[in-house]
Amino acid sequence: MQTEPTVPPALVIFDCDGVLVDSEPLSLACLTAGLNRIGVPIDQETVRARFAGTSMPSIMAHIAADYGIAAPPGFVEAVKAETLRIFDAELRAMRGAAAAIPALGLPICVASSSDPVRLRHSLTLTGLLPLFSGNVFSSVQVPRGKPHPDLFLFAAERMGAAPAACLVIEDSVPGVTAARAAGMRVAGFTGGGHWGHDPAGADLLRAGAARIFSDFTDLAAVISGA
């Protein structure tokens, strides 16, 4: 395991889905149901393992390549709309996030694979958007989404932080991979509802996360290197 410096990071970058909001069980269920409707023989666990933390354009490209099924017109928009409807009824902020994040006293931002509409909807709905003072970045702002490093490098540049001085909080293998490719430290978060299969975060550790935590009450200790 990599030894991390004890100095505080210059910037903490949070993923959104599965880190700030417990959205993944909801969105993965919507996506799986939608894919099944167009004839893709895939279950929710496979969708989680392959696509959690990945943008919709990348997901649909993989579906076309692996299953030979192209999304019909309006499919992506319909899945997104259904996901937002379910969010309105069921989405919650991750327990403890609203208190732990501002208590850090460090520069923070969000960097997410979600499109800007879903991203801001989720953060507004859960009351977390004001914590980030408008510093919310989406994969649509860069040429390549996660697992490529573009989004994290873009966020660091916009926030005026050197990549090596950034710490990323991520819950997915593509996200951890992207952060490590950007030259950033990573802490893996497994407190979301989709991590019941592996709370120890073995997949995230293999991808390059330096440590794993599952409760926002531990956030300050994780960031301090304790």
Rank of each mutant, 00 (worst) to 15 (best):
T126E: 12
P143I: 03
D171V: 01
T124K: 14
T54A: 10
S112K: 04
V117D: 14
A33E: 15
V12D: 11
V173D: 06
L204M: 12
Q2M: 14
F75I: 10
G183Q: 03
A98F: 01
G68H: 03
E82Q: 13
L35T: 02
L20E: 09
P199N: 10
G193D: 11
L106M: 12
G53S: 07
N135M: 15
L11G: 04
V173A: 04
M56F: 14
V21W: 00
L104M: 09
A200S: 14
D218F: 12
V186S: 03
H121C: 08
I59Q: 04
D115P: 09
G191P: 02
C109A: 14
F189I: 04
I108A: 11
A202G: 15
I42M: 07
M1R: 11
G39C: 07
T32I: 01
V21N: 05
P73I: 10
R185K: 03
V176Y: 05
P107T: 07
D15G: 01
G96N: 10
I108E: 11
P73V: 10
D218A: 15
I38F: 05
A187F: 08
G175L: 06
F132D: 07
E4Q: 12
I69A: 05
P25D: 08
A155K: 01
A161P: 00
P72K: 06
L84S: 13
L129R: 07
P25G: 06
F137P: 06
F216P: 02
W195N: 15
D150L: 01
P149W: 00
V136N: 04
E90T: 10
P102Y: 12
F87P: 08
P9D: 12
A155G: 00
G127T: 05
L205C: 08
F154H: 08
H194E: 08
D15H: 00
V142P: 00
V7M: 14
V140C: 13
V186F: 09
P5K: 06
G188S: 06
A49T: 11
F75P: 02
S139W: 02
A78H: 10
V136L: 06
E77D: 15
R92C: 14
A207H: 03
P25C: 08
K80P: 08
S224M: 12
A29C: 09
H121R: 06
K146F: 00
R50D: 13
R95E: 14
D43L: 01
A52W: 04
S23H: 00
H148V: 00
G183Y: 04
E24T: 02
F132Q: 03
G127Q: 06
L119M: 11
D43C: 02
W195Q: 15
A33G: 11
H121G: 07
Q141S: 05
R185L: 11
M184G: 06
L131R: 00
V176N: 02
A103P: 07
M60P: 08
